[in-house]
Amino acid sequence: MSNYKLIFTGPTGAGKSTAIAALSEIPVVTTEAKSTLRNPHQEFKTTVTVGLDYGLLKLKNNDKIHLYGTPGQERFDFMWDILTEGGLGLILLIDNARIAPLEDLRFFLKAFEDFIKQTQVAVGITRMDLSSKPKLSEYHKELRKLGLNPPVFDVDARNKKDVSLLLQALLYSLDPNLKAER
């Protein structure tokens, strides 16, 4: 039995908890992660508690895929390096109804740059039912500028099939010669 992890990230409200719940076999739990934050403007260290979404997918041979959702608050990005260590790949969810979704995209790609280089990313654009712009083509354009061409799907995080397809696309990106075992 082995353990693996998949990382879900994106701004608050993008649908990370919902997407993890759609895939997870167990009810999603928000784990408390205590961390020591070194505030550059202060001499002291402060301890903060951040909520980390956690879900689980079990495979036939009892291998476990742990699903982690990063805390959306950008000020906790110090945790991201630790969290992604050894991860299989990244699911990035972007909320299309926020003020500047393309900036969100750039921010998260930058923050996870190294992890993406080592693995792959699949991008789900959520809440397109509420805001149809920017269009997917604009996301592709933005990604191309950064030398990336990952799957970008219109995803409703409440729809299991959407989330599943996004994850499948991530797996094929990691290994295009893949075939599901029947």
């Binding site: 082995s2 693996y4 895939l23 997918l57 495979l59 036939k60 041979n61 291998d63 895929i65 299989l88 299991k160 099939k161 599943s164 994850l167 499948q168 797996l171 990691l174 290994d175 010669n177 893949l178 075939k179 599901a180 075992e181 029947r182």
Partner: peptide, 20 residues
């Protein structure tokens, strides 16, 4: 070349497809 985790991916894919 083959991804070192291909077997894992295969099983995960099968799981996702079966659970749709």
């Amino acid at each position: 070349s083959e991804h070192p985790k291909r077997n894992l991916f295969k099983r995960l894919l099968a799981r996702l497809r079966g659970g749709e």
